[in-house]
Design a protein around this nucleic acid. Structure first.
Lengths: 230, 230
DNA sequence: CCTCAATAGTGTAGTTTGAACACTATATAG
DNA sequence: CTATATAGTGTTCAAACTACACTATTGAGG
């Protein structure tokens, strides 16, 4: 089957940077390409946009197809567009313009499963990445920057999104790890606790962790509304 | 001449929101469409991306072609990508994905000239816009939000860009107008002067305006490096 | 030349926000 | 019972932001 146009059309793909925090380090989901170009190389999960689907929809579909991250696992999680990348020559096959997305998944919930087109799917520590296919190193760097921007000194309207790294019920220490990992800076415990309680409404679940060889920690849940920026 | 592909390909366009500040009000450059669809409707200047040109390059070419804003006039001015817009059905002809850009031009320098495909090209006050073609109202709203974000309480790395609204030599009152127009909030004069001098290095040109029926104002130029965020 | 109108220019005090800093508490393992 | 590992808690100082009112200089017009 062939598709014919009066003018040349570029191909359009999506690619998604799926971030998580594993053992206190920022990780990204990558797939090993099972087909040329860049066969055997690691890449962001993504693929061609369907003609009837929205860009974000296509990105989610590809996540399921290539990395086994189902729409179910993504439901309720933030999904941001990073931007379009369209330098001529970024794909050796033909002109391909890709629209990149960013998502944040909880530290404890998502397992990757390779499938269509992907030989493997794995989590990589962000500061220990393999060589990436296409211009994905570029895209990933911009995704990382967008992640940082979410929690830069004045909080963006989307700052709540970073709580997606946490399980539904979390301790303040876990929350601190998330903010430290994203900003890359160590935070002072007492200041952090004051600050997070000033900016978010945290519901004290009146429960404690258990099992650790140490004092149990109080569990919280992100409450109704973010308090305010500033 | 026809172009044939194994898979259907969407068309890709660019659209640019060109902002300026005219008589203390934020304005946008729009063109009146001279051809269907949406003939006679106002729209952001833009058009199809060439197969060998980068996205931003294509956007600038279209600005020249449709609105008479030459690469020359744009040189040195910021040019930011807002994002890709690709809802199926946003263009009645075929699937069209557009990549939107944002630029800021000086209050005193750019005249619009309609040409290719555009019946007219004009500046419109942002808060007095006509109905727009396609999803351009949407795109424009996101461009406006990006403009605000440039100068939100903690300054983005790109905050210098707002000086592009000013002539090379400007008074502090003009600068205040720019920041007030972007944020939509009235600023207190003494505080603003302290603040801008704390965040930017302004070179005092040791010159004064003249001709006004009032005290002359000192002229400044944006100095070398931005001081720092915070 | 005097007055008016219009914009330029300047400093201080109060409040809020962010940064630095050290010790006590409680669970488990051995 | 002891050792170890993490949880939890307040105060003080510095910096940044807010509010606030008067004098200065020019051109126009009478």
């Amino acid at each position: 089957m062939a598709y014919t146009y009066d003018y040349p059309h570029p191909a359009v793909t999506t690619d998604t940077a799926v971030f998580s925090i594993i053992e206190g380090r920022l990780h990204v989901a990558l797939i090993e390409r099972g087909a040329p170009p860049f066969k055997g190389c690691w890449a962001l999960p993504g693929g061609f946009v369907g003609m009837e689907e929205d860009l974000a929809e296509g990105a989610r579909r590809e996540l399921a197809e290539e990395a086994g991250v189902t729409p179910d696992q993504l439901s309720g999680l933030p999904f941001f567009q990073i931007g379009a990348f369209g330098a001529p020559g970024r794909d050796p096959r033909e002109r391909v313009i890709t629209v990149a997305f960013l998502t944040l998944v909880p530290m404890d919930r998502v397992t990757l499963v390779a499938s269509t087109d992907a030989a493997r799917a794995e989590w990589f520590a962000y500061d220990d990445l393999p060589a990436l296919a296409f211009d994905h190193a570029d895209i990933l760097a911009q995704a990382r920057a967008a992640l940082s921007r979410l929690v830069s000194t004045d909080l963006s309207a989307d700052a709540d999104a970073v709580f997606s790294f946490l399980p539904e019920e979390f301790t303040l220490s876990q929350a601190q790890t998330v903010f430290e990992t994203i900003t890359g800076a160590a935070l002072e415990k007492r200041n952090f606790r004051k600050w997070i309680k000033a900016h978010w409404e945290l519901e004290d679940l009146q429960k404690k962790t258990s099992g650790g060889r140490h004092r149990p920690a109080a569990l919280f849940r992100l409450g109704g509304a973010r308090r305010q920026a500033g």
